[in-house]
């Protein structure tokens, strides 16, 4: 992890980089202990993880959303206007932001049982917003795009002008697969007779896809473990004087 330490100051005679590597290595080993069984070491690492990451999320949300999108354009100018009217011409507050602030504050109505139904307003607003957004998006990104990609000639011409039977066969299989898979998802009829047979073929296609998806992911997952092994071998072990004759990561 070359990015581990941007600064190389020292604490108690140890460089922050070395401390960082040790912290990371111990936490790494703590998590792996879970593979044997749940244990106090894993629990400590897990709770550190929860605390640190929840705070990280909160701080990032503060700097990237609250500060630039609400505090700076609305609250600070508003305060300026009220307490420092002499500076009023600096920036005018964006009053429309009072709406999301109001909706956001309504969420706190959950603390007051009598008015907790008010918290439904912001939820309804946000859910409606994304529901609306998803309708044209799904049509454009999935339905039209994938339909376009599926309308293939079953007997295409190859590069040399002759017929390309192999591609034609693949195209036929692709179209069949799409139709059969769709048939599997048909809900309002019994899967018997023709529909039953077609949807059965659909299930076969699904199984091929899932098998392939599984097999294709194995390499990526093993790579993740390789990454941790490399960290322990080439970054951590050297700090206790064990140098393995391998290529370093940085």
């Amino acid at each position: 992890m070359p990015a581990a330490a941007a600064t190389s100051s020292t604490i108690f005679g140890l460089s922050t980089e070395i401390i960082g590597i040790w912290v990371a290595a111990l936490l790494t080993l703590a998590i792996y202990s879970f593979l044997y069984a749940d244990n106090p070491v894993y629990k400590v690492a897990e709770h550190i993880f929860v605390g640190i990451s929840a705070a990280y999320g909160a701080v990032i949300l503060y700097y990237q959303a609250l500060l630039p999108k609400l505090v700076k354009p609305l609250i600070i100018p508003l305060i300026d206007r009220v307490w420092h009217p002499e500076l009023a011409d600096a920036t005018s507050p964006r009053y429309t932001l009072l709406v999301p602030m109001f909706l956001g504050l309504l969420i706190f109505s959950r603390f007051v049982p009598k008015y907790d139904w008010l918290s439904r307003w912001p939820i309804a607003f946000v859910m409606g917003l994304y529901a609306g957004l998803s309708i044209p998006r799904s049509v454009q990104e999935i339905i039209l795009k994938q339909m376009h990609g599926t309308m293939l000639p079953l007997l295409p011409r190859g590069a040399n002008g002759g017929y390309d039977f192999l591609t034609g066969f693949s195209n036929l299989l692709l179209v069949m697969g799409v139709i059969c898979t769709l048939a599997y998802f048909y809900f309002s009829a019994r899967h018997e007779g023709l529909l039953g047979r077609v949807s059965r073929v659909g299930v076969w296609f699904l199984m091929v896809a899932f098998g392939a998806g599984f097999g294709n992911t194995v390499m990526a997952r093993i790579s993740l473990l390789i990454g941790r092994v490399q960290f322990l071998l080439y970054d951590w072990l050297p700090t206790i004087g064990i140098h393995l004759g391998g290529p370093g990561m940085g």
Partner: peptide
């Protein structure tokens, strides 16, 4: 590292 990692990959697969 690619070749070495590939060794791990092959054995694991």
């Amino acid at each position: 590292l690619g070749t070495l990692g590939m060794g791990s990959q092959s054995v694991a697969h």
